[in-house]
Amino acid sequence: MSFALEVMNWMLIAGFTVLSVSQLMAMVRLVIGPDTGDRILALDTMVLNAIGLIVLLGVTQGTRVYFEVTLIIAMLGFVSTVALARFVLRGDIIE
């Protein structure tokens, strides 16, 4: 049991590291992205990585209080992606 818990702690650290590096790579794409679609895609990926980071934080602390935070960020990420894409497509969000 203690061996498994130790491995799980190492895997949590690895997960945090990988998610942080992925967030940085998405940020690089956000800065250098040659087109608007790439920037919207990078923001969408950053929202997904932020959801993963919050979930890993909840696993690390062993609490369930981050569930609502994750759900609200997932909804806001989807709505903001659609709003950005719609602004580019139509020049207006709610016509």
Binding site: A4, M11, L19, S22, M25, A26, A42, G52
Partner: peptide
């Protein structure tokens, strides 16, 4: 542990593909 490994691999592949 297994799900953490799978998630880390897939997220990293996504970031590499994006970049």
């Amino acid at each position: 542990i297994v799900f953490l490994i799978i998630g880390a691999i897939f997220t990293f592949v996504a970031a590499i593909g994006l970049l």
